[in-house]
Every structure is written in C-alpha cells, then in structure tokens.
Amino acid sequence: MDQSVNTGNYFVAGYVVILVLILAYAASLFVRWKKLQAEWDRLIERKKLH
C-alpha cells in the first residue's frame, strides 16, 4: 500500500457511490409504482365507462 495516498478521499467516494446507488434504486421503485398507479387508474376509469 502506498502510505502517501490519503485514503480519506476513497472513503468519501465509496460512501457517495453506495448512497447514490441505494437512493437511485429506491427512486426507481417509487417512479415505477407511480407510473403503474396512473395506468391502473386510467384502466379502471375506462372499464367503468364501458
């Protein structure tokens, strides 16, 4: 290991990447849920009209 390297930068980078990926997955779940809900509402409305 290169002792001159400041590993603090890698520590911060590691946690930024981890948090961004976890939040991105949570956001993708939320967005997909909202889109499906809108589609479900639209289809139910259409079914009522028929």
Binding site: A26, L29, K47
Partner: peptide, 25 residues
C-alpha cells in the same frame, strides 16, 4: 425493498390483466 418490490410486481400483474381485458372489450 423486497416488500415494495413485491407490491410492484403484484400491481404490474393486475395492470397487465386489466390491459388485456380492456383490449378484449
């Protein structure tokens, strides 16, 4: 995450069924 994702999978299935029924109509 698993609970949310299972809900999503169930909703996807329901929407697919509704879509199929509305196409049949």
């Amino acid at each position: 995450f698993l609970w949310h994702r299972i809900n999503l999978a169930q909703l996807t299935e329901t929407v697919d069924e509704l879509r199929f029924m509305s196409e049949e109509d």
